[in-house]
Design a protein around this nucleic acid. Structure first.
Lengths: 223, 223
DNA sequence: GATCGTCTATGCGCGTACTCGTCATCGAAG
DNA sequence: CTTCGATGACGAGTACGCGCATAGACGATC
């Protein structure tokens, strides 16, 4: 799950970025409105977190522009206490949720989870492929009832694979959703992480879930 | 499906080429406008991906020229953020879709798929000849319900045959759509690949689908 | 300074794409 | 019907690059 945070106060922005990364999201941070808009249009983010009060271009304008481009990415708006009246306008312009500054970081994380759940598989939020179960709420993974311990990146990759079960996922697609903009194209990190996941999930099991599609990419599937 | 990418930024071009090739397209990459136009006129591509801002000749001029020549190949235009106003002109000049740079690679792949589907069989996108079924979305092939595993080239060839069922396809036609410009005419690769496909699709079956038209080429047909 | 997580670098094995050579098949001419 | 050249089928073999595995560099955290 890749998130773009547009927030001009460096301290707040870094704080949010950090917190989201600890939840295994791939996060890009942008302190400028115009640049942020470009990034939002450029990359297929899973969520945008946008401050309303920004230099060079307001969060509201960003929101309106991306909706005009028919980008349906969920947007979480951050408003100062004094801008409460702006909320309604924000929701009208296509925001999915808002949060008043200052806020508790847990509050933010809870809303982010809610927005991402909504967009995805719907239902209870539990992802399941064969006897492999992933609970996004607790970030707990089990295979055949047995707990599997994953690092942040391993988890992020697995979640992406599980949200697109049965489809071939090319390396560019994976890097775009699991890594942030610093990703280096000419590297084999993805292969390495797939290998890590295989060791923890498929090794020693009769039924393999992670499949290589040679020349294309990878696929998670029960067959 | 053969695609021509006209893009002067080497890195972007290579990235696009790689991604398309992983989707089993045959891809030619050209970094120059005039040369690109020549290639577009010389070869019967299934799709053109053209950057608007090019040295020596703008993408718009290329577009106008090939449309004047009554070439109906679908065209996907790439524009920089600052050239958004050019889009309308581009669509007027005969572009089928546009994409703003920088863009998400999934987005590009999705639009490419959409444009190629539109030109072809329409409908659900599923291709079927007798009990042979090909699903372009998942790149999955079955014969009589049984899964058939194909390599990238085998798949590309079969897709081309299936999109032109019942018509005689000459070797030049096949090489033009399934291989890229590096194709060596004085070779029998096509025969070899038809043989591979026969082994995987017709071998052991009563009803043969791949037919040889001696002196001409090949044909896929239920009879 | 020890440990953990992320990423880089590298060597190896194998599958894919392709070449080549030989044999089978077809069609036309005698 | 036989012969013969042209065309295609197909098995064997090769080169190369993809993907896998593993070791280790680097940085952050405690």
């Amino acid at each position: 799950m890749r998130v773009l945070v547009i927030e001009d106060e460096t301290k707040v922005g870094c704080f949010i970025k950090r917190a989201l990364e600890e939840e295994s999201y791939a996060v890009d941070l942008c302190e400028d409105g115009v640049k942020g808009l470009e990034m939002a249009l450029a990359t297929n983010y899973d969520l945008l977190v946008v401050d309303l009060m920004l230099p060079s271009m307001s969060g509201m304008d960003i929101l309106r522009t991306i909706r005009r481009e028919r980008i349906l990415t969920p947007v979480l708006i951050l408003t100062a206490q004094s801008q409460i009246d702006q909320r309604v306008k924000g929701l009208d312009a296509g925001a999915d949720d808002y949060l008043t500054k200052p806020f508790a970081i847990d509050e933010l994380l809870a809303r982010v989870r809610a927005l991402l759940r909504r967009g995805a598989t719907e239902s209870s939020g539990m992802l399941q492929v064969d006897d492999l179960v992933l609970n996004p709420a607790t970030r707990e993974v089990t295979r055949g009832g047995q707990r599997v311990d994953l690092t942040l990146k391993e988890y992020a990759l697995l979640e992406y694979l599980m949200r697109h079960t049965g489809r071939v996922l090319t390396r560019p697609m994976i890097s775009e959703h699991v890594w942030n903009q610093d990703f280096d194209t000419f590297t084999n990190v993805i292969d390495v992480y797939v290998n890590y996941l295989r060791n923890k999930i498929d090794r020693g099991r009769a039924k393999k879930l992670i499949h290589t599609i040679r020349g294309s990419g990878y696929m998670l599937k029960a067959d």
